[in-house]
Amino acid sequence: MTTRDRLIGLTVVVVWGLNFLAIHAGLEHFPPFFFAALRFAVMAVPVILFVPRPQVPLRWLLLYGTGFGVVQFAFLFLAMATGMPTGLASLVLQSSAPFTVILGVLLLGERMSVRQVAGIGVAVGGMVLIAVDRIGHGATAGLLPMVLTLIAGLGWAFGNLGSRLAKAPNPLHLTLWMCVVPPIPLYLVSLAVEGPGAGVDAVRTIGDHSGLVALVGLAYVVLIGTIAGSGLWTFLMGRYPASTVAPMSLMVPVVGITASWIALGEAPSLLQVTGAAIVIVGCVAGLMAPRTRRSAVTDSSPCPTPTLDPGHASPSAPGQPSPLPPEPGGHRNEPVAARGR
């Protein structure tokens, strides 16, 4: 990888890591499900108008959009709205990587190398340490947001499978069209859970300070995290093997945790830092496994986004990244976040 392309990769890492701060800003004003619907709706309209629909089976596009878009962001935003620290969310969302490998084995008949099994075991051990620390903050208040974030990571993993099975000739078009799937389901969930007045009140008070900050966060998530981050990630994934590019996304949580520490005062505990290091080591072990067989992880980025995460070439993130971030994140057919990532 050339120096220029390494710098591009590091730029995407920073963009997706900061994506979680933008999500935090949006959630300070918008209800979580409504904000998730809005995040995809503002992209869906121009995508339908200007981006050619990818020539892939509809079922795989729906699986990608439902897993990566609906499940991941509904549960991620709900977790962050109910107390999941912003920086920690960027890390726990990386559970999409081992989830993707496991789903590939269970549903697609893929086989894991010994090194991948060991890496997943190490990553799970790191997650357990973080869970123990969260329980120390109160069984319900501390653990529930983490469980919700893990469900978001599982949704991202199902999205990764849909992205892989689609085999899109243009991965970026697939990632962008994925954004067409989530708005209506997420808005219906918002109506059922948050009530019809929640989103209306948030829009009506958009001129308030928190509303303006939320708009900046929304603009960052869409324009910087998803479009710019995913586009750059897709460019890299098109030039180099996924096993070369994808491990870079493991630095997204480092940026996310550091940024939330500086901007929000979320100082991680020693146990959380230890668990985070163990998780990243485990994910590296899985991602760097010998490519004797095509593995699920090498097609997905643990981050968001864009991710285009957290599938992640994806957004996102956190995803990201995926091209979508997570913003979460990136893999060959998507970057989290995250996107978020």
Rank of each mutant, 00 (worst) to 15 (best):
P52V: 02
I262N: 04
A25R: 05
I227L: 00
P323V: 12
Q94I: 11
I227S: 02
P54E: 03
S243R: 15
A219V: 08
V122C: 10
P335A: 05
T149W: 11
V132A: 15
A41H: 05
S163C: 10
G207F: 05
Q272Y: 14
L38N: 04
S96T: 15
A317C: 07
R6Q: 15
G109H: 03
L250M: 01
V13T: 09
T175D: 12
A118C: 10
M84P: 07
V117A: 14
A277T: 08
L38W: 03
A152H: 04
G340I: 06
G69A: 04
R111F: 11
A228Q: 12
D299N: 14
A36K: 14
I184W: 11
P54T: 02
M251A: 05
V124K: 10
Y220F: 09
A152K: 07
A192E: 05
L106I: 10
L250Q: 04
A285H: 07
A337Q: 07
A22E: 08
L143H: 00
I23K: 04
L10K: 07
L191F: 05
E327R: 15
G275V: 14
T298Q: 10
R115H: 06
P54Q: 00
L106A: 06
T307N: 09
R293D: 12
A338E: 10
A157D: 15
I120P: 03
A192C: 06
P315Q: 08
P253N: 06
I48K: 00
I130Q: 09
D208L: 01
L107R: 08
P196F: 11
P145T: 03
S163L: 06
A168H: 01
R239P: 05
T2E: 11
G197C: 09
A242P: 06
T86M: 01
G121Y: 09
L103V: 04
I280A: 13
G311K: 07
V245W: 02
A259C: 02
F158M: 13
A276Q: 08
A277K: 06
N170L: 08
I151W: 05
G286S: 14
G319L: 08
R239M: 05
S301H: 13
A139D: 04
T307S: 14
S210A: 15
R239L: 04
V284Q: 12
P321A: 13
V122H: 07
I23Y: 12
V56N: 12
A296K: 12
G126V: 01
F99C: 06
